[in-house]
């Protein structure tokens, strides 16, 4: 069961990371397009709006993947000095408090996304973008992050070892 959840989480994180990479390419493309258009007295008019969405989406969609790949820095002051058998309880505490914090925030962000959707709130720009879309993508990233933290916690409890992902 946990193995299956871990596989699911890894798969979803990879998918989200793929989208995040596409967003980096999109940012590049849109900015270059705007520069070229401006040379000819035109504009897309939505550059800062859409690049803003893309940065937020890239950051939150990329987070769970980078967390899983150990790409996020930490200060292992205590962890490195503790005897080995204490590692997994501390790691568990870290994963659970992080989950609690981001889980709590995603709860309220979910309510906000639902409101944006139900009331049809749009951006104040020419594009009149329905705000639930960019807001929802960030929510998705937060959920994936929470899911990754849950899977990590479950693995820590069952394996009682610091190393949760064999791939590391």
């Amino acid at each position: 069961m946990i193995g299956w959840l871990a596989t699911l989480s890894r798969g979803l994180n990879r998918l989200a990371a793929g989208v995040a990479i596409l967003l980096i390419l999109y940012m590049f493309g849109h900015i270059i397009l705007e520069i070229v258009l401006r040379l000819f007295g035109h504009s897309t008019f939505i550059l800062d709006e859409y690049i803003g969405y893309a940065v937020a989406a890239m950051t939150f969609l990329g987070l769970p993947y980078v967390l899983e790949k150990n790409g996020l820095i930490r200060v292992a002051l205590v962890l490195d000095r503790l005897p080995g058998k204490w590692h997994w309880p501390l790691e568990l505490l870290i994963a659970v408090t992080s989950f609690a914090a981001f889980g709590w925030l995603s709860l309220f962000w979910w309510q906000n996304v639902v409101r944006s959707y139900q009331r049809g709130i749009t951006s104040d720009t020419l594009a009149e973008t329905p705000l639930w879309v960019p807001e929802g993508i960030v929510l998705l990233g937060l959920w994936l992050l929470c899911f990754t933290l849950v899977v990590r916690s479950l693995q820590l409890v069952t394996k009682r070892s610091r190393h949760t992902h064999p791939a590391q």
């Binding site: 401006r38 007295g41 035109h42 504009s43 008019f45 550059l47 800062d48 720009t125």
Partner: peptide
């Protein structure tokens, strides 16, 4: 009005 408006931060 014939201008070339640009949006910038």
């Amino acid at each position: 009005a014939g201008a070339a408006p640009v949006s910038l931060s």
